[in-house]
């Protein structure tokens, strides 16, 4: 990917984007909780691995990928999923990817069909659907965050990182 594809942004615009990004980050203590084991890092990693696999399978763009991880992290940072039930994180991952794909992709498979790559857990349509609505009620409320023509710095960085 060539960085030259991006328009040169003015300093003001970069500043604005950085400020805006701050409004779309997981909670302040999220990283600490992941490190301390309060949140299970390996479960998150599995979820991310799966999202990457499913995104690749369906040829989703980097924006869907980054967006779904952003949703996942923000959800985990605010909301306590039941401890010891790792499948809840996988369900969350499916719902996050589903919503991100609906947000960004032209071809969007049904949520159940997203579950490719032999995930440990597979969910029924209505289960995913409920999770989507929990998620949906939330992201519908927030500023969806992603500009049509501009990307937040972390997205650019992440997109570059996964494509080089």
């Amino acid at each position: 990917m060539g960085c030259s594809d991006f328009e040169i942004q003015s300093d003001d615009r970069i500043k604005e984007m950085v400020e805006k990004e701050a409004q779309h980050l997981p909670g302040d203590d999220y990283l600490k909780r992941l490190r301390s084991g309060d949140l299970n890092l390996s479960v998150r990693r599995d979820a991310l691995d799966w999202i990457l696999k499913a995104s690749a399978h369906y040829h989703f763009g980097p924006l869907s990928f980054c967006l779904s991880i952003n949703y996942l992290d923000r959800f985990l940072s605010v909301y306590d999923l039941p401890k010891g039930k790792t499948w809840t994180v996988q369900l969350l991952a499916v719902a996050c990817l589903s919503i991100a794909a609906k947000m960004e992709e032209t071809k969007v498979p049904a949520p159940v069909d997203l579950q490719v790559g032999e995930p440990k857990f597979v969910f029924e349509a209505r289960t995913i659907y409920r999770m989507e609505r929990i998620n949906g009620g939330w992201w519908g409320e927030m500023d969806a965050g992603i500009d049509f023509l501009e990307f937040r710095p972390s997205e650019i960085a992440a997109a570059v990182a996964i494509s080089v």
Binding site: V78, F121, R130
Partner: peptide, 20 residues
Amino acid sequence: MAIAGAGQLNLHESPCWGSR
């Protein structure tokens, strides 16, 4: 491969945060 039934996840009690 495990399958989680819908009943296992008590989503009724889950809040829809931010949403009035």
